[in-house]
Structure formats: C-alpha cells, structure tokens
Amino acid sequence: MAALLVNISLGSVKIPLSDIGHILLGQDASKKTWEHIIIHYRLPKAITAILVGFGLSISGLLMQTLFRNPLAGPFVLGISSGASLGVALLVMGSSLIGFSFLNATVSLAIAASLGSFLVLVAILIAARNIRDTMAILIIGLMFGSITAAVVNILSFFASMEKLQQYVFWSLGSLGDLSWTQVSLFALIILMGLLMAVFCIKGLNALLLGEQYAKSMGVAIKNIRLLVMLATSLLAGSITAFAGPIAFIGLAVPHITRLIFKSADHRILIPATALVGAIIVLCCDSIAQLPGSELTLPINAITSIVGAPVVIWLLMRKRKIVL
C-alpha cells in the first residue's frame, strides 16, 4: 500500500499527498488537472506496475519449479524473446507484407503471447529428450539469440517510424495504457494467476523431481501444460502491454524464498506475487527520478536492480535452492 502511494505521488507534476488521498477516495481535489493526472495517468500506471509484478514474478517461480533450476525465468528461457519476436513481426513485419491491424493493443497481446508460447513449446520439446537442465537453459538462450537475429533482420528492412515504435516498446513502459487496456490486461493476468493456483499441489510435488511427483499420482503432463499456458499468458501479455521487462521473473522468486524461508507454493505463490508487485512499484518510482521531470525506461531500472541480485546469487551458488 505504501509502495502504491509513493508510486502515485511521484511524477513530473508534484501533487500533495492529501490531495491524492482525496482523489482516491472520490472527493474533489484542489486542482482539476491533478485529478485528471491521478485518475487517467498515474493510477492505471500503478495498477499496470502491480500486474507486471504479479505476472513476471509468478511466471519466474513457475519456470524455476518446473525446470527445477534456480536460474530459469521467462527472460532467460527466451520466452520474453519469443514475445519480442511476435511483436517485432507485427510492428515491423506487417508493413513489409503491407497490411495493418485494426486493434493494435489486442493484436500486440496476441502476437506476443503466441511468440512466447511457441518458444516455450519448442523448449519443452527439446527438454523432453534432454536430462541436463543446464542444456535446456542454453537452448533457451539460443532461442533468445535466434529471435534477436530475426528482429535485427526485420529492423534492417523496417521504416524509421516502425523501428522507433519497436525500440520504444522494447525499452518497456508501464504508462500509456487506457483503462480499457488495463482491464483487459488485468483479466489476462488474473487468468494466468488462477492457472498458477491450480498448479500449486503439483508444483509442490515437483520440488522432489518429476519421478517422485509421478509416483505420487501427479499428472505431470497436465501440470506441465498448465504451467506452460500460465507462463506464456503472463509473460506474453506483460511483454505485449509493457515491453520486455528484465530480471523481475528471475530475481523476485529468490528474494521471496530468502524472506519467507519456505518452498511451499501455497505460501510462495501469494508471497512472490506480493513481493513482485512491491518491487516493480519501487522500480517504477525510481524510474520517475523523484525531483526531476525525466522518466527513465523501466527496463533499465529493473535490470540495474535485478542484475546485482543475479550476480549475488551466482556468487553464493552453493546455497541456491528452490
């Protein structure tokens, strides 16, 4: 809540906290423009930040448990890259083949989700015949480079305007979403979270490995499919609406495990979602650069916060647990 308030109060226009309270409670503020800024700009952005936090951190948790690898995450496994490719094809590719889409947001979401789902399926097919989980991670990184290469080729041929559109998207942005888009986004994220909740029992069994889970009657194939669907919905829609936001998916589950000292997904799922939302809100608050009129791209801030966490995790590798 505090993180939410801080987030809303920060921005290029200074608005006193008391007025923010009034506006949020539905009362009149001292200036009409403030009300407009809060309701139509900062509140949807804060909600987007919360949704991004929920979705990315949960999909990271799901991936880490499914692959039983502490370094798994939507970003490392190339799922975000898949989403990027989907968006790049849509934004830059559509001009090449010469047709455009009517509803940009929905088609972006579909393209990104499809892209991430395809990459995830490809990785899982590869994973079926590979026992070594490190190999799966490397395959994920390879998919990342392939998609990056395809994006490069696309951008080489794309018009300046389209290229700029894609570059801005790739920097990540939590703002610029209308209430309609936020509602649609929230709906998709909720669906993904609901799927994750239904995986809880199976995920707990998977902590002992697939063999044990199977021997306890867990329908591995169903759980795997559900986790895949949930992850591609979450990571895919987030990448579509807010751009490819790095590190949250990888770092937050570890931070949560350190704080809550648990492996039980009945605790980890809500806890990870909460920590994820707080961290993204904080990152966004930092991105506002309090006291200045500049706003930094969110992707830069999450990486600056997230990369040291990953480095720190690698340095104490012996203690990495699921």
Binding site: L207, L208, G209, S215, A263, V321, L322
Partner: peptide, 16 residues
C-alpha cells in the same frame, strides 16, 4: 495408494 517408490537420484536442493 498401493505402491510408493524411493529413487536413487537425489532430490533437487530446496527450502523443504
């Protein structure tokens, strides 16, 4: 419910 197994492979490290 009628047959349980203990495998040779160790379990992945976790907070369990």
């Amino acid at each position: 419910k009628v047959l349980s197994i203990v495998f040779t492979e160790s379990i992945p490290p976790s907070n369990l």
